[in-house]
Design a binder for these strands. Structure first.
Lengths: 209, 209, 209, 209
DNA sequence: GATGAATGAGGGTTCATTCAT
DNA sequence: TATGAATGAACCCTCATTCAT
C-alpha cells in the first residue's frame, strides 16, 4: 500500500514538526505529549500509536536536526575563495536560523541542559567541525586568510548565527520589530559577514572605495 | 533576631541558587519544585513555606538576573578609550558567563520560549542597551571608532559572550576539554576581543609589530 | 456508538449523584475529589477524566438542581383552585425533599455560604418566584384568598418544606424515628398543609364539622 | 494573675467567634485553622496554642450554641397567655437568627451533615423540646389552643425562624434587599407570627375589629 | 488505524500540627 | 506566650502510557 505508507510518512513528519515546535518552547521535560498531539492535530492516543515514547521522539528529532545541519552547513573546500565560502556559510546559516528558529532553539536547549541526549551525535558534529578547521587551516597556510584560531572562529560564527534564532524575542524588542514582522535578515547578515571577514583580514561587503 | 533574619536570608539565597541551577537545566515548566527543594537541600513542603509559588520564584530569579546584569555590564561612557571599554566589557561578560553559566542559560531559555515572563523587565534592559548605543555613536562621531551599527555590534558581542555559557557542553566537546575542567577563558576572551576590536577598526590585542 | 455514549452518560450521572451526596455532606471546600470518586465507585484519576474541575462539577450540580426545581415546583396558574394548588405544591415539594434530601442540603449549604456560585442562577429562580407571586396576588384580588404577603408566604412554605430535608437528623431524633426508617411523610405533609391553608383563610384538611 | 486569666478568656472568645464565622461558611472540613486564626487576628501557631485541635474547637462551638439556645429559647410555661408566649418565642428566635445568622448556619450545617458531632448534645435539646410540648399540650387541654401536633408545630416554627438566617442570601435576592442592608425584621416577624397564631386558632396580630 | 477510557505516578500546593526559640 | 520553621499527609489535577473496542 504505497498510499498507506505515504500517509504514514506524512503523519510522522507532522508529528516531528509539532515536536520541534513544542520541544523548542519548553524542552523535553516541560512538554507534554498532549500538547505535541494537539499541535500535530491528532489525539494523544493516536500520537502514542506512532511514537514509542516521548524520549524516543525527542531523540529522533535531535538526530534529524544534527543530520540536517551536517548536510547543509559546511565550509566547502570547494572552488570558492575564502571570502565567498565564509559569506555563504554565514548567510545560509542565518537564513536558516531566522526561518526555522525552533530548530535552533531546541538544539540550544538540549545543549544548555548539558546535552544528556546528544551522546550519539557528538561524533558526527565534531567531525564536521574538524573538517572545516582543516579547510581554514589550509587557507591560512596558503596565505589566503589572516591567522585565526579555526575552532574559535567557527564557534563564534555559530554563536552569532544561532543567536538571532534563540534570542529572537529579545532582538525583536531591541530592534523595535513588532510581533508579527520578521527581523531584518539582510541587515543582520551584512553585519555578521563584515564582522567575520574583517576578523580574518578579508574586506567585508561594507563600503569600499 | 538578627540571627534568625540572617538564617532566613541564607535560606532564600540557597533557594534562589537552587532555582537558578534547576530552571537553567529544564526551564520553568520542566522543573519540579521537588527537584528545586532537593537541590536546595530541603523538603518540598519547606520550600513552599519560603516561596509563594513556582512561577513567582521564577519571576524573582529572572528579576535578579536582569538587575544583576544591568549593574555589572555597561559600556561606560567614562574616561576609558573605546578599545579599553570594549575589551573590558567583553572580558567581564565572558568571565561572568563562564563562572555562572546557569544564569545565562536560564535567561536564554526564557527568551527562547518567547520571553513570556519578561514583560516587566524589557524596559530596563532596553534602556541599558540604548544608553550604550549612544556611547558608541559618540565614539563614531568623534572619529574614534569605525562606523558600526551600534545595536548589532552590541547584540553580536552579547551573542558571542553568552554562547560559551549556553553551549558550554558543545564547546567542551569541540575544544576537547574534559568534563570537570574549565574552558580556557583566556583563549576565548582573546579571540572575542580581537574579533570585535577589528570590527570597529581598532587594533586587536593580537600580534603587533 | 450508542452503547459507548450511553455508558458515558451513565458515568456522568453516577458522578453527579456521587457529587450531590458528598457536596451535600461537606460543601464544596470540604469535599475532596477522592471522596467523590470513591462514592461513584471510580478512581480519582478516572473522575478527573470526566470532569474538568471540582468547581465546575459543583457548578453543574447546582445548575442541575435549580433547573430541576424550576421544572417541578411552581404554583400553577391553572384551573386548580387555590387550596388544591397550594396543597399540591406543598406535597410535591415535601415529598421531593424527603426523597432527595441531599439536593436540598447541597442547595442550603450553598446559600448559607453566601451563595458565591449562584451568580448565574438567581435570575431564573427569582423569575419563578415572581411568577408565583402574581398568581397569588390574582387569587387575592379575586377574593379567593385572604390577603397575604405573596413573597413571604412562599418563602415560609419553602422554609418548612426544605426543613425536613436539611434537618432530617434532628427531626429523626425529635420524632423518635430510628436511623434506617423514613420520616412520617403523611403526618408532616398534613400539618404543613394545614398551616399554610389556614394562613390564607382556606379550610385545612383538618377536622371539619 | 487575674489580668492574664482575663486576657486568656478574651482570647478564647475571640477564637470562638472567629470559629463560628468560618465554620458557618465552609463547615468543619472546609475550614482551615489558618483561616480561623486570620479571622481571630492571630497566627496559626498561636491558635494551636489555645486549642487542642480543630475538631475539638468545633465541638466546643457546637456545645456553646446548643447551651445558648437552651437558655434563650423555650416556650415558658409561665404566666403568659399562649398567644404572647408564642409571639414572644417567634420574635426572640427570629431576631436572634437575623442578628447572629452564623450560629444558625453552623448548626444547620452540622445537622445537614448527619449531625456526627451532636452525639452528646441531643439529649438536652430534646429535653427542651419535650418540655415545650408539654406546655402546649397543657394549653390545648385547657381549651386555650386549637389542637395541634405540639412537636410538628414547634419544628415548623423552628423551620421558619431558622430559615431567614440560613437562606439570608436568597431572601435578600427575593426581597430586593441590597447586600449591606439588613432584612426587614419586623415584616418577617409579623408574617411568621400571623402564620403560627392562625394555625392554633388564635387571632394574629393582623387587623382586628 | 483511531478513539474513549483507564491508571499509577507525580506535579504544585495546602493542611493540621509540632517544635525550637 | 508568641513566632518562625518544619513535616508528612492530603489535596486538586496532569502525566505518559496502555488497553479495549
Amino acid at each position: 500500500m504505497t498510499t498507506a505508507q505515504k500517509k504514514r510518512r506524512e503523519m510522522h513528519i507532522a508529528i516531528r514538526d509539532a515536536a520541534i515546535r513544542e520541544f523548542a518552547r519548553n524542552g523535553l521535560a516541560g512538554t507534554s505529549t498532549q500538547v505535541i498531539a494537539q499541535s500535530a492535530g491528532i489525539s494523544k492516543a493516536q500520537l502514542h500509536y506512532y511514537i514509542s515514547s516521548k524520549e524516543e521522539l525527542y531523540q529522533q528529532v535531535l538526530g534529524h536536526i544534527v543530520r540536517q545541519w551536517r548536510e547543509i552547513f559546511f565550509l566547502s573546500p570547494t572552488r570558492d575563495d575564502p571570502a565567498t565560502a565564509i559569506a555563504t556559510y554565514i548567510e545560509r546559516k542565518l537564513r536558516h536560523a531566522l526561518e526555522y528558529p525552533d530548530i535552533s532553539r531546541l538544539f540550544a536547549n538540549e545543549i544548555a541542559r548539558g546535552a544528556p541526549e546528544m551522546a550519539g551525535h557528538w561524533e558526527e558534529l565534531k567531525a564536521s567541525v574538524d573538517e572545516a578547521s582543516e579547510v581554514i587551516r589550509g587557507w591560512i597556510e596558503a596565505g589566503m586568510l589572516a591567522p585565526v584560531d579555526p575552532l574559535l572562529f567557527q564557534i563564534n560564527m555559530w554563536a552569532v548565527t544561532q543567536h538571532y534564532a534563540e534570542y529572537e524575542a529579545q532582538a525583536r524588542v531591541l530592534m523595535d520589530v513588532p510581533d508579527g514582522a520578521p527581523l531584518d535578515a539582510d541587515r543582520i547578515i551584512a553585519e555578521a559577514t563584515e564582522l567575520f571577514l574583517l576578523r580574518c583580514g578579508l574586506q567585508g561587503r561594507g563600503p569600499r572605495p
